[in-house]
Design a binder for these strands. Structure first.
Lengths: 126, 126
DNA sequence: ATATTAATTAGCCATTTGGCTAATCATGAA
DNA sequence: TTCATGATTAGCCAAATGGCTAATTAATAT
């Protein structure tokens, strides 16, 4: 049950649940895009993402300088959980806002994103 | 999504997940029985139980001096979550142990249980 | 009425968590 | 090779969490 507990802990934080929620809609997102819509420092987003990967909730792949994250669809036992979360969070104001913000972010290539580190945690203009 | 987050937080602690796990098997348990199998102080069990009730995961009813807790089956949207948890935790060593301990505890009437407060957090002989 | 007792609440403490900045690692560009 | 840059790690701090004991509340039993 420790494995299950790890999964639950990985999604029972506000920002991590927000990450999961948008990945239920967008197949794959770059760390910099996630950093951007969460409006937290890059290091903070990175740590949340690591926790989710370690728990087996997310998978990632590196492509050049960027790391892309997606739900772990290989672990089929997670599917019912994802489905449940989806039903619960879709159309909530938080997730609606996040998806809207992401729309704008996705219009900008990653090269122009991720200025948070240099900007001291504040969001880049998109 | 805050409601969903509250539910997730309510079950993403080891002891609270243990409580949920045994309530998937035993329809209803008294606070003193839960205190007993968790082997924590009564106050600690009580606080965990309150959190789960507040999040809507558990319901309780008072009967005399005892308070009985059970899963909230009224909220039908929780059913898939309970089902998922059940599949994940059943037959894990932790839950198996807990259920075994509960078997013995259930043989003892509540009157003879719950000596933890007086015993300084240590378990009564059953 | 008084004592007993299950449960809860209050108050304390140690640990964990989540945020930040700064430093480091790793990859592509000049 | 050297520089720029996205991601991660390290180190720090404030807030939240989970444990305990002691005090309080609510109900039964004497």
């Amino acid at each position: 049950m420790d494995k299950t507990l790890a999964v639950l802990k990985a999604i029972s934080d506000k920002n991590r649940l927000r990450i999961l929620s948008v990945l239920l809609v967008h197949e794959e997102l770059c760390a910099c895009q996630i950093t951007e819509f969460l409006k937290v420092a890059g290091a903070t987003a990175s740590r949340h993402l690591s926790q989710m990967v370690n728990a087996g909730v997310l998978e990632n792949r590196k492509q050049g300088r960027w790391v892309y994250f997606r739900l772990n669809r290989d672990e089929s036992s997670l599917a019912p959980l994802f489905k449940w979360i989806n039903r619960k969070v879709e159309n909530t104001t938080q997730v609606t806002q996040d998806l809207k913000a992401l729309e704008k972010i996705l219009c900008v290539p990653c090269e122009n994103l991720s200025r948070k580190q240099r900007n001291g945690g504040h969001c880049a203009k998109v």
